Amino acid sequence: MNTDLDTINRKILNELVANARIPVSELARKVGLSKTPVALRIKQMEDMGLITGYRANLSPLKLGLTHITYMQIRLDDTRQKALEKFNAEIRKIPEVEECYMIAGGFDYLVKIRSRDMSEFRRIMAEKISALPHIGSTSSFVAMEAVIEQDFSPS
């Protein structure tokens, strides 16, 4: 099976994204196959790394994590060893929800979720500022989530 997904595999993936706990029998009914071929397709997509896991999606808002800050980070050293060290250390900060290496006027774009500005300030002072090779940062506080969604293959 290659990564070109047929219609049934796309339906399976869409159903799993919507509800990863759906019973295979119900999933089979929804995509128009019996249980065995659906289970086989899921196993194949897992084996090829297309499905990388299953998880519970938590509500950040209900957990009180309503403050989102996007941060541009510019490093003072962008040689490979410096990048690897920075990457390893930022992965250890649980409040960092996303981190991308960027081609452009700065090196990394980071999404940090916290309870409020005071907590963000603590994260910035104690964790972000302590990261290796930090040259400069710029922070941008999100006022409202206009679109916030999980990936779906449809």
Rank of each mutant, 00 (worst) to 15 (best):
V24D: 11
S25I: 12
E26C: 10
E26R: 11
R29C: 07
R29N: 12
K30Q: 11
V31Y: 02
L33S: 13
S34K: 04
T36V: 12
A39R: 04
A39G: 05
A39F: 07
L40C: 09
L40P: 14
L40S: 15
R41G: 02
I42Q: 00
I42M: 01
Q44K: 06
E46S: 00
D47P: 07
G49K: 02
G49S: 05
L50C: 00
L50H: 00
I51T: 02
I51L: 03
I51G: 00
G53Y: 03
Y54A: 01
Y54S: 01
R55K: 15
R55E: 12
N57H: 11
L58H: 13
S59M: 00
P60C: 00
L61G: 08
G64Y: 01
G64L: 02
L65G: 02
L65T: 02
L65A: 02
L65F: 07
T66C: 14
H67G: 02
H67D: 05
H67Y: 08
H67L: 04
H67R: 04
I68N: 07
I68T: 14
T69S: 05
T69R: 02
Q72P: 06
I73N: 04
R74D: 13
D77T: 09
T78E: 08
R79H: 09
R79L: 13
R79G: 09
Q80W: 13
K81E: 12
K81L: 08
A82F: 08
L83I: 13
L83R: 09
E84T: 15
K85E: 09
K85L: 12
F86Y: 09
N87Y: 12
N87E: 12
A88S: 12
A88L: 15
E89P: 08
I90C: 10
R91S: 13
K92L: 09
K92C: 04
K92V: 04
P94D: 01
E95K: 13
E95H: 10
E95D: 11
E95A: 10
V96T: 08
V96E: 06
E97A: 14
E97G: 05
C99R: 09
C99S: 10
C99G: 15
Y100G: 07
Y100I: 12
M101L: 15
M101T: 13
M101I: 11
I102Q: 14
A103W: 15
A103M: 11
F106L: 04
F106P: 01
V110T: 05
K111P: 05
K111A: 08
I112Y: 00
R113E: 03
R115V: 06
R115T: 05
D116I: 06
S118I: 14
F120K: 01
R122C: 10
R122P: 04
M124C: 12
A125G: 10
A125C: 08
A125N: 10
E126H: 07
I128M: 03
S129F: 08
S129Y: 15
A130G: 04
A130T: 08
L131I: 03
H133T: 07
G135F: 06
S136W: 09
S138G: 13
S139G: 08
F140Q: 06
V141I: 15
V141E: 11
A142M: 05
